[in-house]
Design a protein around this nucleic acid. Structure first.
Lengths: 344, 344
DNA sequence: TTGAAAGCGCTAACAT
DNA sequence: ATGTTAGCGCTTTCAA
């Protein structure tokens, strides 16, 4: 945690070693294109190499007034949804020779603003926030204020979510995806559904729920409020919600879990109850690691890595006049977990 | 990517607003404990709040000669093995109010040294490297040299792997875990094994393979070289290796894949071949997201989050006289994927 | 207790 | 083409 500020090779050491001025050394090592005689340049480069010189990024940042740092804020890096998006962000960052700094909010909305403040202090060039989906007014306001301050100081911001704040956004078509899914499931013959709806107040979950309900309504398939159970956005949350739903003694043909991770928990619960073959299960996201569960999970595929890439690309591109948004649609993937019901 | 260096509230703005000197403002806002009159302190704090002042971390780092940044180098953040360890690192970082910057090497060993150099430039306080498991001499040497330079400039380093370099290390007992696993499988009655061995040159994989072989040898169970197939450390790698193994026409009772992700690919291949019920499958890691595959996977559980925590804790603690190491053992978990064979 | 001023390592005018 | 030097925003002696 502490470090001795002594040693650490500086540009001055390099300049001295190469027998040139500080400015020349700077130009040769970090500066713009040729303005320095090749032989000198080489001498400096050799000195730098020999001394294992690494430019002090803080000093460069101060002098240049700009950073090479990208901040990424996710809810939980251990959740494959976020780690895939993070992979996309990191890929683009690397291509642009930028460093990415990740913060995990552990699903606590108030943490987001805190991290933005920290990144603002670090003079990050850009911030990407994934999953700012709360409906807590206070947290959202504070986040908005921090983001404004960040942008005012020259930083750029992109959100991955629905549009909630006036900044660049990659909008995930959760509602449309869930709507399509509902239509497909009805096409398979299912008529009586249950929904494992994720936590209240999480907008991603809410959008998927309401999209699914719209889809059902569009085909005049009823959904009793009693058939909707809220739960954590995790495997265990899905398991618990499924148990609760089963406990309500409803006649179920198919269950929609608002994400794959919950769906897997639900499948485990159904299996334990001996119902895994009689009740269909569908999820959302198409998490890569979960593509091999059996029966294979019907879901809505989201191009998560591409979403991450798109977010950082948007934020690194020339700013638009106002906040822009880019819409990403999901694609329904039918698999064995919803074999369908023969028309009776 | 570019940013206007203008605006952005500075400490000077705060000082002016509060009508005090720069030094006083510094002491009041960021400095050590009380040395400033309460009423003044409050005035400064209020000014800071109103202006939404966020201290420039680069400037602080320069002035203080030390950073609050932790670098984390992993092979692939999308792989749950790494994202779980990352979660552990981030948890400890947050507890110590440190920022973590993640780099993904995409499994290219030469990238590691490059990232260390970058982190050295950023004057990171500490670096944690997970999965530096190559046996490429050149890459390892270059990494060692970079790490030495980093430590010389006051940084601290921890590795998660076996001891390869003279730095603090969290040693994962891959060999012992695989050995235990072999013994357990033999206890279940299996006698003819296949191994999906991961890429050549990846030491984690090599250790698990040799540990497993030791375990078999200990019980005098033979393993033909022909029954060992190398493949990528991924789901598809496991799938391909399993296909290859099946193609060799051996009589298999049980397959050990050197990690869970490969094991899942192998199970898919077996299922497609109609052999999923006749051939046992075991993995390694006990990846959380994979705990619900069916049949449930026999594996060696590794406390991944704790490993990440341990690594950062070690590196943030007072340095020892020399490189320290902390050993983490895995625990065999038998599940349905290896039902065993009745003694004949 | 508070203020003035000297750096921290580097870049970018401005001179030469 | 190269060198000199004034900052970048902050911390921290050293004086007052």
């Amino acid at each position: 945690m502490t470090r001795r500020p002594n040693d650490a090779v500086t540009l001055e050491d390099v300049a001295r070693e190469a027998g040139v001025s500080l400015a020349t050394a700077s130009r040769a090592v970090n500066g713009s294109t040729r303005k320095v005689r090749p032989e000198i340049r080489e001498r400096v480069e050799r000195a730098a190499r020999e001394l294992r010189y690494a430019p002090n990024a803080q000093a460069q940042a101060m002098a240049r007034g700009r950073t090479t740092l990208v901040g990424l804020i996710v809810q939980d890096i251990e959740d494959p949804y976020f780690s895939s998006i993070a992979a996309g962000v990191m890929r683009v960052a690397e291509a642009n020779r930028m460093i990415v700094s990740i913060a995990s909010t552990q699903r606590r909305p108030d943490k987001e603003a805190e991290y933005v403040a920290a990144l603002r202090g670090m003079r990050a060039a850009a911030i990407v926030i994934v999953g700012s989906r709360t409906d807590e007014r206070a947290a959202l306001d504070r986040l908005g204020a921090e983001l404004t301050a960040f942008e005012r100081s020259g930083g750029r911001v992109a959100l991955v979510s629905q549009r909630r704040l006036p900044v660049d956004t990659v909008v995930v078509a959760n509602r449309a995806g869930a709507r399509d899914l509902a239509a497909h499931l009805i096409g398979l013959g299912y008529r009586s559904f249950g929904v494992l709806a994720g936590p209240r107040g999480l907008l991603t979950a809410a959008d998927r729920l309401s999209g699914f309900m719209e889809g059902l309504a569009g085909e005049a398939v009823p959904l009793s409020p009693d058939a909707v159970v809220h739960g954590e956005f995790t495997r265990d949350g899905g398991h618990a919600a499924m148990m609760e739903l089963l406990g309500r003694g409803r006649d179920l043909e198919c269950v929609f879990a608002v994400n794959d991770v919950m769906a897997v928990g639900a499948m485990a619960a159904l299996r334990a109850a001996g119902l895994d073959r009689s009740v269909g299960v569908a999820g959302f996201d198409d998490i890569v690691t979960l593509r091999d569960v059996t029966p294979a999970l019907t879901t809505v595929r989201l191009p998560l890595v591409e979403i991450g890439e798109a977010a950082l690309e948007m934020v690194l591109s020339e700013p638009g006049d106002g906040p822009r948004s880019q819409r990403v649609r999901g694609e329904v993937v039918l698999r064995e977990s919803t074999p369908g019901i023969r028309p009776r």
